[in-house]
């Protein structure tokens, strides 16, 4: 499939430092891309540039040839959803109300009950339907993350009534989830990719990343080191040069938690 989301010469500065430096990328529908790299590599910044939240200092992100910052916020919200790292709420919204934010003002020809149904289905998918009447502020970190996943799913479902080509951006979506919900969330996003969404995620767990993604993007100090299939990207050479860790063999271990200590190794 052809690429619909393209970044050219993407550069972003903050405090006199280039957080993202001259990056060219493209994403096709149905692709599952994971951005990896050590701490401070510019992964979150790249994600925020790609979803239109940050305006690049140089270069551009284009959706079907149209510059992202020229697309009005409401239309962009139909095309892509973004799951943030963490989100606090200072007001006593219920879980259902938070998920419903994904359907408020999004979608065409949806009745009030349609929107309710979409929010409820999303809560089911994220396995938080049983928390629907609860005050969001009383939830644990992992439950909160699942509620935001539900909100994002509801937004995509509502947006689908207007836009056929969609993308989903996730920043550390499984950071505070238990293993069962980590796998469930990643399984759901992979299903979305199979249905034609472009999924772009930042993930620390190299093992999960290499198992899931058809494409890895390896960043180091704001620059694109390499992009390609997991086998092509995760070589002993890149692991030493970028992450500063040595693995005993070329092959990644098969158990999902063997790399759990290596992944948090401080940036080289």
């Amino acid at each position: 499939m052809s690429a619909f989301l393209e970044a050219t010469d993407l550069t972003y500065h903050s405090g006199g430092r280039a957080l993202v430096d001259c990056i060219d990328l493209s994403f096709a529908s149905g692709s599952f891309t994971i951005i990896i790299g050590p701490n401070g590599a510019g992964k979150s910044t790249l994600l925020r540039l790609l979803c239109g939240e940050l305006a690049p200092a140089r270069g551009a992100v284009r959706w079907d040839g149209e510059k992202l910052h020229m697309i009005p916020a409401w239309r962009l919200a139909h095309r892509r959803a973004v799951m943030p790292q963490a989100s606090d709420l200072n007001f006593p919204f219920t879980v259902f109300e938070v998920a419903s934010l994904g359907t408020q003002g999004i979608g065409r020809g949806l009745s009030r009950s349609d929107r309710q149904r979409l929010a409820l289905e999303a809560l089911e998918q994220a396995d938080v339907a049983h928390l629907a009447p609860r005050n969001y502020q009383t939830l644990s970190g992992g439950e909160r993350q699942r509620v935001h996943f539900a909100r994002v799913l509801a937004q995509l479902a509502a947006g689908r009534t207007l836009e056929t080509q969609q993308a989903l951006f996730l920043d550390e979506p499984i950071a505070s989830l238990d293993l069962k919900h980590q796998l469930a969330l990643l399984e759901t996003t992979r299903d979305l990719a199979r249905k034609g969404l472009a999924v772009i995620a930042v993930l620390h767990d190299l093992q999960l990343a290499s198992n899931l993604a058809d494409n890895l993007i390896l960043l180091h100090q704001g620059r694109l080191v390499t992009r390609g299939t997991p086998e092509a990207v995760l070589t002993p050479v890149t692991l030493i040069e970028v992450f500063g860790v040595t693995l005993r063999s070329n092959a990644l271990p098969t158990s999902p938690w063997t790399l759990a200590t290596a992944q948090e190794h401080p940036a080289a």
């Binding site: 925020r48 979803c51 239109g52 939240e53 916020a73 409401w74 239309r75 962009l76 919200a77 139909h78 892509r80 959803a81 973004v82 943030p84 989100s87 606090d88 709420l89 938070v98 934010l101 994904g102 408020q104 003002g105 999004i106 937004q155």
Partner: peptide, 10 residues
């Protein structure tokens, strides 16, 4: 939810 999240929601 936050300014960035509000922007994401259109």
């Amino acid at each position: 939810l936050g300014e960035a999240e509000a922007f994401h929601l259109g």
